[in-house]
Structure formats: structure tokens, C-alpha cells
Write a protein that binds this DNA or RNA. Sequence first.
DNA 1: AGGGGTATGTAACAAAAGCTACATAAGAGA
DNA 2: TCTCTTATGTAGCTTTTGTTACATACCCCT
Lengths: 230, 230
Amino acid sequence: MYQDSHLHKVSLMNKTRTLANFLDLSEEGRAQLKQASQLLRVKRHEIAVRKGKQVSGAFIVTQGSLRVFSYMPNGSESTFYHIRPGETCVFAINCLFNRLLYPAWVMADEDTDVYIVKGGDFKELFKKESSIQDLTISALSSAVFKLMTEVEQIQGWTLSQRVINLLLNHADDQAWVYMTQQDIAGRLGTTREVIARIVADLSAKGWIATGRGRVQLLDTNKLSQQFTAS
Amino acid sequence: MYQDSHLHKVSLMNKTRTLANFLDLSEEGRAQLKQASQLLRVKRHEIAVRKGKQVSGAFIVTQGSLRVFSYMPNGSESTFYHIRPGETCVFAINCLFNRLLYPAWVMADEDTDVYIVKGGDFKELFKKESSIQDLTISALSSAVFKLMTEVEQIQGWTLSQRVINLLLNHADDQAWVYMTQQDIAGRLGTTREVIARIVADLSAKGWIATGRGRVQLLDTNKLSQQFTAS
DNA sequence: AGGGGTATGTAACAAAAGCTACATAAGAGA
DNA sequence: TCTCTTATGTAGCTTTTGTTACATACCCCT
């Protein structure tokens, strides 16, 4: 269904949005980073990393967006998170520091540039460069926070509450959410039909309106109340 | 039901199992750590940290064991993890680096010694001392790994599979698991009755035997197969 | 040995979520 | 505008998990 990335490897020289734009490094740090990193360009819907792959280095996205997900026993996809410009992949860092195999699949949401910094060099840079320390710590700790929150929600909330929560978090200024029901289902680890049922219910109550590829929040107050009221 | 810790604060001087036993530090590092840390002794079943508390520093357990959990909407407890000697609390580190309030409850499983290292000093030490970096990174990344695994399991496995997995992971050499059904339920975020039902089923199949406060694994092969077979 | 506190065993019922199978609608592009 | 792809709407049924309410068994302590 989806193709593999062709692993176009490009030199750092001729790019405007290089890694250095996202990190504040010392002279030596900058030099080491430059020679240790490699640009990987991934096209929309290409697989960037396969599950079980040996992780050679840290990934840092400079442009575009990557989606990290896994397949559930029934074959459906469950999305863990997205990696956006300036962010690094926690799972890869985790693998680097613990010599694990990559535990998920990564697909480009759109055409994406990723820099790969060799594992050994990354660890060395980590010891000295505080901006690398910050990047690493913040990636790890925000992952801990998100995952913890997710575990709590999966265990303590109904699916309906989780859908509402996701809608509230993804709404833009005009209270629109641009996601298909399939996307929502994938994000919550369930199936489209279930989302359709829940969305239909919320719509019948007049709290939201649905459209193709989008949802409009009509009554954010009522929606928010679904967490406090039993 | 449970009492608060009385926060007995004791000087570092007269302890044999001090923090230094668990960390390999430079001279200055050792000195700074010493003056920045404080021993907290918590008695069995006392609450060591309350949810929503401001986190003043990193916790490192030198003796005993702490349980980190949260309350679900229905009032039951859901255990995230335990902190054992030489380990530190990820959530606390997370809070330190991101200025968050502590997101869970902590109770001592048994009489426990915890050192509290002031936040500012801990961050300074982190920049220079590689053993502190290791402790931090390994706490964060093993948390990421565990939580990620847990999310995958909650979403992709049946409760029965999750119970079997937990039993296999907690069995000692003689294939005994010393946990009450209540503990198991808390670990998996469900209720005792449900565990009783599952355990009764496994027992009827002859794969396990149950007893008060313990479970014996009789056929680990069959149990392990429950993950591959549909 | 007996008693009280805990832990486990059971059953019936309720609610939530997953699955199957189509029908219908919206939008993109020719 | 017409068609084709992709997304949504719905219904009925199955399976899993949660709840309620007791009965029974175990084990420590006196």
C-alpha cells in the first residue's frame, strides 16, 4: 500500500534550514554535529523507519512532519505521536541509550526532512552541549508526560470522553477540527465505526456538527463539562 | 485510611546506605550533593507525596520501596510503577525539568528511605556529572519504554493476556507469583472481581493454581502461547 | 482452638466497545 | 457535469469488561 523511502541522502551544504538553526552549539559542537549528521528526505506517505530496525542515530526533523505508530493485532494503526520541525524522536533516543530495536513504524505525513546524527557522536555531544541535553531531556520528559496522561485516560475515561478531549485539543480558533474519523480512530486506538457512533451521538445532542474530513465544535462548554459531571 | 508521612528529616551523617553508595561522583559533585540532599524516612503505608504537590527536588530511594499510583474516577487505584533502591522517580524529574506539579500519589510499600536532592542543585549536577546524567536518562527512557509498552498492551491485548503477561513477569524461580488479586487489579487498572474471573478461567484450564495472596504457574508454555495464537 | 480481618469464589446483570455489512454523501478531477 | 474515490451514517449483533452482592475460605493472633 505504501512505498518505502528511497533514502535520498543529501549533503548538508546546500540547505537553508539546517540542523544548526535548531540548536545552539559551541564551535566544536557545531563541527562535530555537521560531520556526524546526514540529511534524509522522505516523501509524503513513505515509510521512514520500519519496526525492528536497528537505530543508528538520533532523528531531528527540520521540515515537514512524521507520524509514529504501531499496528494492533487486528491490523489497524495506532498513532503514538507526530514529530515536527525542531523535535526529535523519543523512541530513537530511547533505543540509542538502551541499545533497543526501534519499536514502531514511522511514516511521513508530508514531504519531510530529517537529519540523522550518528549515535556515538550524539552521546558525546550530549555530555557537553547543553542544547543537546535540553533537546533530549525535553523530548524524553514530554513523552513521559504524554504517555502517562494517555495511560490514565485510557484506563479512567470512556471513549466518548477521550474523543471529546481530542476534539477540544485539536480545534483551531474557529472551533474546527480537521481530522477524518479514521484519523481520530487511529489516534485513540479504536475503529472508525465506533468514532462514527460517538460523533453521531454528540451531533444529535447539538454539541458538534460533522462534515467530510472535519468536525465543528458548537458548544465547547457542554463538551468540557463531560469531564467533571459523571 | 492511610496516614501522612511525618516527614522525619534526618542528617546524612549517621547512615550507612547513603546516596553516595549509588552514584559515582567527582569530589565537588559529592560535596554539592551532600549539602543539597536531605533524607526522608517514610513508614510502611504512609503517603510520601500527594498529587498536585510542588516538586522541590529529585527523589532517590536508598532503601525500601515506593509505589506511584493514581486514583481512577471510580475511586480505585491504578499503580504506575515502584521505585526501588538506586532508582529515582521519573515523574519528579519530569516535574523538575518542566515546572509541573506532581501528577500522582506515592505510598511506601514498606519502611523506606528517600533522599531529596534540591531541584536547582540537581540540574547543576546534571550538567557535569555523568553518573547523574545516566541516572536521569535511564529513569526517563525506561519510563518511556514501559509506558509505551503499556499503552500498546492496553490497546491491543485482552485483559486475560495482560494478566498472563503480568504473571509471567512477576513469577519467581519456582513459578510462584506473590500478589493478591487486588494488587493485580490495581496494576492493570481494573477490579478484583474481573481478575478473579480470569484467574478462575486459567485455573479451570489447569494452567495455574491459585492461593491466598499467590498464584502458581503450572504450564508456562500454554500461558506464553496465548500471545501468538489468536 | 477459636475469632476476626482479609482474600478469594461466584453468579447474574449492565454497559461499553468491537465487528460486519451496507447505504449514502461529499469532493476532486476529467 | 459526471464519475470515481474516499469519507461518513447506521443497524444489529457479539464479545469483553465493569458492577453488585454475597458466600466461603484462609491465616494470623490470642
